[in-house]
Computed example of a mutant assay.
Amino acid sequence: MKNIYLVFTGLILLAYAVMPASAFTMKSLSITIAGNGDADVDISYDLSFVEQTAVFFRLADPAAQLQSAFDDGGSRKVTVTRATSSSAHVMIPSFATVTPANSKQTWEATPPVSFEHARAVLNTYWFAPLVSPDFSPAVTTITFPDGYAVNYYDQISIPSVTHLMSG
């Protein structure tokens, strides 16, 4: 068992020495809002060799980290339905605030979203000094039930978006 550990450690060090110091890179974030304010969130990302190894040996859990990142500490139950080494799907009830404007229209407002906390959480892992993560999605898309969409590019923090829905 000790020999396996030494071989494994040697392979990681060798891989680290010959590989660029890449890390978690968020490629895309897609937030689809339902009429009741619930959100389906799809995330696409790349993991470095070190991070993939940590996930493989269950030293890091992407599902738990995503749940923590989206959980507001309140009463809503954030559910990670899928988390792999390259993507995840999260369901967030009551993500957007729905407010009637009149008898035919409603306002839907999303809260601001920031991944600054995710960066701080990642820094607590043993492999943090080996990586330099990029939590700024290359593209973030927020889509409302009527098809209206807003895009942001390379931003770690996304502002609140308010949209008037006709119904």
Results as ranks from 00 to 15, higher is better:
1 M>D: 13
3 N>W: 10
3 N>K: 14
3 N>I: 15
3 N>H: 13
9 T>R: 07
9 T>P: 04
10 G>Y: 01
10 G>T: 05
12 I>A: 14
14 L>S: 11
14 L>W: 12
14 L>V: 10
15 A>C: 12
16 Y>D: 08
17 A>G: 15
19 M>H: 15
19 M>C: 15
20 P>I: 15
23 A>R: 12
25 T>V: 11
27 K>A: 08
31 I>R: 12
31 I>G: 11
32 T>H: 03
32 T>N: 11
33 I>F: 04
34 A>R: 10
36 N>G: 06
37 G>Y: 00
37 G>Q: 07
37 G>W: 04
40 D>Y: 02
42 D>H: 00
42 D>N: 05
46 D>T: 01
46 D>A: 00
47 L>V: 03
47 L>D: 00
49 F>H: 11
49 F>G: 13
53 T>F: 13
53 T>L: 15
55 V>I: 06
57 F>T: 14
57 F>I: 13
58 R>Y: 07
60 A>R: 07
62 P>V: 12
62 P>I: 10
65 Q>P: 05
67 Q>Y: 07
68 S>E: 11
70 F>S: 05
71 D>A: 14
73 G>T: 05
74 G>W: 00
75 S>I: 07
76 R>S: 10
77 K>W: 03
84 T>D: 04
84 T>S: 15
85 S>K: 10
85 S>L: 09
86 S>A: 14
87 S>T: 08
87 S>R: 04
87 S>Q: 10
87 S>F: 02
88 A>R: 07
89 H>N: 15
91 M>L: 13
91 M>T: 10
96 A>S: 11
97 T>H: 08
99 T>I: 01
100 P>L: 11
100 P>W: 01
101 A>H: 01
101 A>F: 03
102 N>T: 01
104 K>I: 15
104 K>W: 08
105 Q>T: 08
107 W>N: 06
108 E>I: 09
108 E>A: 13
109 A>Q: 12
109 A>I: 10
109 A>H: 02
111 P>N: 13
114 S>N: 06
119 R>M: 07
120 A>V: 09
121 V>M: 15
122 L>E: 05
124 T>P: 12
124 T>V: 12
126 W>A: 15
127 F>G: 08
129 P>H: 03
130 L>Y: 10
130 L>H: 05
130 L>T: 09
131 V>S: 06
131 V>T: 11
132 S>A: 15
136 S>G: 11
136 S>Q: 13
137 P>I: 07
138 A>S: 05
139 V>A: 01
139 V>S: 02
139 V>Q: 07
140 T>M: 00
140 T>R: 02
142 I>Y: 04
145 P>N: 04
147 G>V: 03
147 G>N: 06
147 G>P: 07
147 G>Y: 03
151 N>W: 01
151 N>K: 06
152 Y>G: 03
152 Y>R: 02
153 Y>M: 00
153 Y>G: 00
153 Y>A: 00
157 S>T: 00
157 S>E: 01
157 S>Q: 05
159 P>N: 10
160 S>I: 08
163 H>N: 11
165 M>G: 02
166 S>L: 06
167 G>D: 02
